[in-house]
Amino acid sequence: MAAAAAAGAGPEMVRGQVFDVGPRYTNLSYIGEGAYGMVCSAYDNVNKVRVAIKKISPFEHQTYCQRTLREIKILLRFRHENIIGINDIIRAPTIEQMKDVYIVQDLMETDLYKLLKTQHLSNDHICYFLYQILRGLKYIHSANVLHRDLKPSNLLLNTTCDLKICDFGLARVADPDHDHTGFLTEYVATRWYRAPEIMLNSKGYTKSIDIWSVGCILAEMLSNRPIFPGKHYLDQLNHILGILGSPSQEDLNCIINLKARNYLLSLPHKNKVPWNRLFPNADSKALDLLDKMLTFNPHKRIEVEQALAHPYLEQYYDPSDEPIAEAPFKFDMELDDLPKEKLKELIFEETARFQPGYRS
């Protein structure tokens, strides 16, 4: 834990890192770190609560700039109880001085990944967590956004079992017609939660990839272990087919990539493993919904509104309290091709509203 900075004593240090967030945020305490930044909790002297502050230093890398800009653009436009918001952003007053960006968010005690390492969940908890994931996802999908990296560590939890989806750095506007060349190379989302079509096709992607990830998360809540822990690309596919069985001819016809289709045709026939054999203690309604989410063919996979209306979630289902976005989200430009200098300018502009004396 960093010592509390005395008023006016300059930035606090946390594990050798400068955290320049005073005077409003003090009493910093280390939480963890990701690929390009550290997260601390801090005391907000204005709202009198502890908050989470993520320090991001992305400006050396085009990919990190892209992810940072995506996350900020999306989260500043989203407003939903099951999606983490941005409360404040701290950065230098000029673009030349801006080396880091500090993002202030609600402090959540833990995440689903940490929880599943230590606790076996009751059916009631599984049901409530799944409902909140789908409630947040309904809003995301209504904005025409794909999260693309749903996994237990991106689901934040607090002691009252509130759940918030975080990390929109890989999110995209849904565009089933656009052929994202190089899709697989830039697709760094965790393999275990990846839909089979991501490994088999490169053309376009749809909201059904997020539903697949939610199915993987439900299976993990039922058993405290990942359902498809593939060691590499082909191993991942083999794990999936080992449980779902061989795809039907109709399902194979959806695979545009001939090499991928021929690979699947070359494999020995596998039978589907019954879900109640894998999860003998699970609620039968939970397994019915799991089956509809972990469907090989993305066109037959359940959609988020149908999933919310499934009998497993009937005690929570309330369409009048499951809000959607006001308007579909649009990125003005494809960020993939922009140089990091341009992305830095866009991050600077996007964060201006939090600067003292800002006038829109």
Rank of each mutant, 00 (worst) to 15 (best):
E349L: 14
Q62H: 00
N262E: 03
P356C: 15
R172N: 03
T185Q: 02
K344I: 09
C40Q: 08
K342M: 14
D88V: 06
V273K: 14
E349P: 13
G34R: 01
N253R: 07
E334A: 15
P356R: 13
K114L: 04
M293T: 11
P339T: 01
D20A: 08
K164P: 02
S284E: 10
P268E: 08
P226R: 02
Q236C: 05
A5E: 08
L137F: 12
N271K: 04
L290H: 03
T110S: 00
K48F: 06
F296A: 05
A174Q: 07
S202G: 05
V173P: 06
S142W: 13
D321V: 01
R15V: 12
L170K: 04
P229E: 04
L264H: 08
Q105S: 12
G169M: 06
A260C: 14
D235W: 06
L134W: 03
P328V: 08
I165S: 09
A4K: 14
N144I: 00
N297A: 12
V51A: 14
G22F: 10
P23G: 14
R15M: 00
H180Y: 05
W212V: 01
I126H: 08
I240W: 09
L121I: 06
P93T: 00
Q355G: 11
E305K: 02
A189W: 03
M13R: 03
R135G: 12
F19A: 04
A195V: 02
M108S: 12
C40W: 13
Y139S: 05
L222T: 11
L184K: 05
G242M: 09
N201L: 10
L289K: 04
S320F: 08
K73S: 05
E220L: 02
E81M: 11
L241C: 11
Q249Y: 13
L107V: 11
Y316E: 10
R70E: 02
Y25C: 04
L146M: 07
R225D: 13
E109H: 09
Y317P: 14
T110E: 04
Q105G: 08
Q17Y: 13
T190H: 06
F354R: 06
D321C: 12
L157C: 10
P274Y: 12
C254A: 10
C166L: 03
N201G: 04
A4S: 04
F59N: 14
K292D: 09
C127A: 08
R353A: 13
N45K: 02
M333P: 06
T63D: 07
I198H: 06
A143Y: 13
K285F: 10
I347R: 02
L200R: 03
E322P: 15
S41P: 15
L222V: 09
F78V: 03
Y317G: 15
P311I: 13
R148D: 03
D106Q: 14
K151F: 02
S213H: 04
D167E: 03
Q105F: 14
I255Q: 07
L290Y: 02
H61W: 13
D318M: 07
P23V: 12
N158I: 00
V188S: 03
D44A: 07
L267C: 09
P176H: 05
A143E: 08
E71S: 06
L289H: 06
A9F: 15
L244M: 01
Q132D: 06
D162W: 15
G245F: 04
S41W: 09
C254V: 09
L115D: 09
L241K: 07
P328F: 04
I324Q: 13
K300R: 01
L157G: 07
N224L: 06
T185N: 02
L200Y: 10
A309T: 01
R148N: 04
G37R: 00
D149P: 04
P226D: 04
N144W: 09
E334H: 14
H141P: 01
Q105R: 02
E322A: 00
A143S: 03
K342D: 13
N27W: 11
E71V: 01
T351D: 13
H299L: 00
H80M: 13
D88N: 01
S223P: 01
Y25L: 06
V273P: 15
H232R: 04
D251C: 11
R91A: 14
T118P: 01
I72E: 06
I84R: 06
A219I: 05
E345K: 01
G16Y: 10
Y187K: 04
R50D: 12
L28P: 07
R67W: 05
I211T: 05
P328Q: 10
L163N: 09
A92F: 15
A325Q: 12
N297Q: 05
I72C: 14
Q62V: 07
V51H: 13
A35T: 00
V21E: 00
N281E: 09
E220N: 05
A260Q: 12
F354I: 01
F168V: 08
A219M: 01
V273I: 14
K285V: 12
H269W: 07
A325M: 15
P229L: 02
G204F: 12
S57T: 03
L163M: 06
A171M: 06
P11W: 05
K340P: 08
L218I: 06
C161T: 14
A3F: 12
V173A: 03
E334W: 15
Q66N: 13
W192Y: 01
D20I: 08
V304I: 08
A2M: 02
L218C: 06
H147C: 06
F348N: 10
R148S: 02
F296L: 00
L28I: 07
L241R: 12
C166G: 13
N87I: 01
Y30A: 12
K54F: 07
Y233T: 01
A352H: 15
G85Y: 14
T160A: 06
L234T: 07
S142L: 05
L267D: 14
K55G: 06
D337H: 08
L156S: 04
D106P: 15
A5R: 04
L346W: 14
T185K: 02
D20T: 09
N297L: 07
L289F: 09
R277K: 01
A327Q: 10
M98K: 01
L294D: 03
A171F: 05
L200E: 01
K272N: 00
Y358S: 07
K99C: 09
W192R: 00
V14F: 02
Y131C: 08
D291C: 09
N297H: 04
I90N: 01
K164L: 07
L121Q: 01
K259M: 00
E12M: 13
T295D: 06
L69R: 15
D337I: 07
F296T: 05
A189K: 03
L308V: 14
K114F: 07
R77W: 02
I83G: 14
P280W: 09
A92K: 15
I56K: 03
Y113M: 09
R194N: 05
C127G: 11
E71A: 10
L313R: 07
P196M: 01
S153Y: 04
E250M: 13
P339V: 09
K292I: 07
S246N: 06
A352R: 06
A52E: 02
R79L: 08
N123T: 12
T190N: 02
L313C: 15
E305C: 15
D337T: 11
G8P: 08
L218W: 05
M38Y: 11
K54V: 01
E33H: 12
P356A: 15
I324D: 13
I211G: 02
R24H: 06
D106K: 14
D288S: 13
P229T: 00
D336V: 01
E326W: 11
H299I: 10
L244A: 10
Q355H: 04
R148T: 04
K54C: 08
L346V: 10
K259D: 06
G34H: 14
V14K: 09
A352M: 03
M333G: 09
L289P: 15
V14Q: 11
I217P: 02
I209V: 05
T295K: 09
Y187Q: 04
Y312T: 04
H232C: 11
E350Y: 15
I86S: 05
T206R: 03
Y102A: 09
Y64G: 07
D283A: 06
K48H: 07
Y312C: 07
A3M: 09
D251V: 02
A189M: 08
I140A: 06
E322M: 15
I89Y: 10
N262C: 13
F129N: 12
E345C: 15
P196C: 01
E341V: 03
I53F: 02
M221S: 08
G242A: 06
M13A: 04
L264M: 00
Q249A: 08
V46D: 00
E186L: 08
E303W: 13
Y102V: 06
N47K: 00
K164T: 10
G16V: 00
F78N: 05
P11F: 15
N238Q: 07
L278N: 08
H178D: 04
G8I: 13
A260S: 01
L287W: 07
P323D: 14
